[in-house]
């Protein structure tokens, strides 16, 4: 019984490690022109205008194509921000709101990353 519990625990650790090391879906979409096009279309159609600027300016519309991220700039962090929103701001969460679910959010992440200016 004890051995079985240890084995299960070890399995859980391995699974968790595996999950952690699994690349985010945005990696896959970065290589897919159709996915990038959809990510761009969703961004332009849902996130642009008064919400996010597509060029650097003085607007209260955060520019997402540089390397300055207030809520984390990794793909996973960006995915989480898009999914849950940012409280007390105009950024609302999009989890469950886009037609292709998480894939659509990952495609937006991939578009942002593909369009990002060189960092550093």
């Amino acid at each position: 019984m004890r051995l079985a519990a240890i084995a299960l625990f070890a399995l859980a650790i391995i699974s968790a490690l595996g999950a952690c090391s699994k690349p985010p879906a945005s990696e896959r979409f970065l290589q897919d022109p159709q996915a990038l096009k959809r990510g761009k279309g969703l961004f332009i159609g849902t996130c642009g205008a008064y919400c996010h600027s597509t060029r650097k300016d003085n607007r209260d519309a955060p520019y997402l194509f540089d390397c300055e991220w207030r809520h984390g700039g990794s793909d996973t962090e960006i995915f989480n921000t898009i999914s849950t929103g940012v409280s007390n701001t105009r950024m609302v969460g999009f989890a469950g709101k886009l037609p292709d679910g998480e894939d659509d959010i990952w495609k937006i992440v991939a578009f942002l990353r593909a369009s990002r200016e060189p960092c550093g």
Partner: peptide, 17 residues
């Protein structure tokens, strides 16, 4: 610039920028 329109309650429904 035209984009993809997605409606959801309380979300921006812009279709472009």
């Amino acid at each position: 610039q035209k984009g993809i329109s997605v409606y959801a309650d309380g979300q921006p429904f812009l279709g472009g920028t």
